[in-house]
Design a protein around this nucleic acid. Structure first.
Length: 429
DNA sequence: TCTGGGGTCCTAGGACCC
DNA sequence: TCTGGGGTCCTAGGACCC
């Protein structure tokens, strides 16, 4: 008996209870298509910074690194705030990556994720601003609120992007795609008016295509795409443009002589399954044909909460034991704070270590009952630490909690304050 | 002087239970 | 003292995303 994989062919409308009706019993009524938008803020962090430093507009600017800036020649620390002189990349010393680069900086070859030291070689005169996440979160709320006033079905995808389900708003439109474009223009104007920032939108039948489309005319673009345009607009693009095909899968496809989404679409699905496994192979085939059934999800519970830190220099488990110990406790306390603030408790406590050679290990342990208590987290994390090799120097230490469940106010009140005292004892020994 | 921090999802083996 | 199989939980690692 053949696999029922043909199910997937008309799956653009899966979990939507309205789907079958729209496709079926409406007689001669014109079907409203599913229309999903992806909105992506343009160079978000850098653009927020430029709001208070408009004098820097037009210059290459990057955001990233730690708040510590190399001292000036006279020994005083450079102050990046408000009106002071802005440090340039060549003066930066230390660990860190670029989180956002303005389009002027990107033109010099630097991009987000690049190490600052490498970026300094490419663009020594680019201006470097430290990240101010509180401020980005504020602007994130503002732009999302502005969108919701026009289109309430919004899925959060991080601080600077969202999906928006346009479908319910287009039910009565004579020309849904024209109406969708108008809505996108309205949303773009509302975001600018609320924040002073520009964004780009992709508007297509599903999330996968919209994510690709929003990137096609950045910055400030609106790209509307129907299924008929997939061969002309999507297939020429590199496979890495598909959200979910990362560095590893991209390299493997390249080795198999598949570079574009069109080449992926033309590949035999069974052959893809043989090379990439059933699940991923089938998914890639569907994705290359522009099919994506995922609904826009307006709320989801968090699954885990974590804190981690990369040290300014690699630390030795024995020689730097005291430093590591207090950092470790501090991470546990922050995780506990985050849990309380967000109203969750968790059962699975884990640690993450990155060694100086960049290799990484994790350990976790599930306890009997969910907790928000820093001391219990610290104890479980300490047990995890005992199961990990501690010969090499460490670069990073992290603490995570999963298996989350909502914790009421009562739960939060039951959590005592930390005295910090008994916490440091059993670490790293 | 390479390579941040916060997440999600998937896979796979073993334990344990029915 | 032989032969399964399904289901769920736990743990470790890895790919990927913003």
């Amino acid at each position: 008996m053949p696999e029922p994989e043909d199910d997937l062919d008309d799956l653009n409308d899966p979990d939507d209870p309205d789907g079958p009706d729209r496709a079926g019993s409406q007689g001669s009524a014109v079907l409203a298509p599913r229309v999903v938008a992806h909105l992506d803020m343009d160079a978000f962090y850098a653009s927020v910074e430029l709001l208070r430093r408009p004098d820097l507009r037009g210059r290459p600017v990057v955001v990233g690194g730690r708040r510590r800036i190399a001292p000036d020649a006279d020994g005083s620390a450079a102050d990046p705030a408000e009106t002071g002189p802005i440090p340039v990349l060549r003066d930066y010393a230390g660990r860190g990556v670029i989180t956002t680069a303005t389009y002027e900086a990107r033109a010099l070859g630097v991009h987000s994720g690049m190490g600052l030291m490498k970026a300094a070689q490419l663009a020594p005169d680019a201006l470097l601003l430290p990240a101010d996440f509180d401020r980005y979160r504020l602007y994130s709320r503002r732009f999302k609120d502005a969108v919701r006033t026009l289109a309430p079905q919004v899925e959060d995808r991080g601080i600077d992007e969202i999906y928006i389900d346009f479908t319910p708003l287009l039910a009565t439109a004579a020309d849904p795609w024209a109406a969708a474009r108008s809505l996108a223009i309205e949303i773009q104007a509302a975001v600018r008016s609320a924040t002073g920032l520009s964004c780009s939108l992709g508007v297509t039948p599903n999330k996968l295509l919209s994510k690709i489309a929003s990137d096609l005319e950045k910055p400030g673009g609106i790209t509307v795409l129907t299924a008929e345009e997939i061969p002309a607009r999507i297939w020429p693009l590199a496979v890495r443009k598909v959200n979910g095909i990362g560095p590893k899968a991209g390299a493997k496809l390249d080795a198999l002589d598949i570079r574009t989404i069109g080449e992926l679409a033309a590949a035999d699905p069974q052959w893809l399954v043989e090379h990439f496994g059933t699940s991923f192979g089938r998914w890639m085939h569907e994705a290359a044909h522009g099919r994506d059934p995922r609904p826009v999800v307006t709320f989801s519970e968090p699954k885990s909460i974590s804190r981690e830190t990369t040290f300014e220099r690699d630390l030795h488990p024995v020689r730097d034991r005291a430093t590591l110990s207090s950092l470790f406790t501090g991470l546990c306390e922050k995780v506990a704070e985050d849990l309380r603030r967000k109203g969750y408790a968790g059962r699975t406590i884990g640690i993450k270590l990155r060694y100086d050679d960049f290799s990484q290990v994790t350990r976790d342990r599930t306890i009997d009952a969910p907790t928000q208590d820093a001391r219990l987290i610290r104890r479980a994390a300490g047990e995890c630490l005992k199961r990990v090799p501690l010969e090499r120097r460490l670069r990073l230490l992290g603490v995570r909690i999963g298996g989350l469940s909502p914790a009421g106010v009562a739960g939060a009140a039951a959590v005592g304050l930390l005295d910090g005292a008994g916490l440091n004892r059993t670490l790293f020994d």
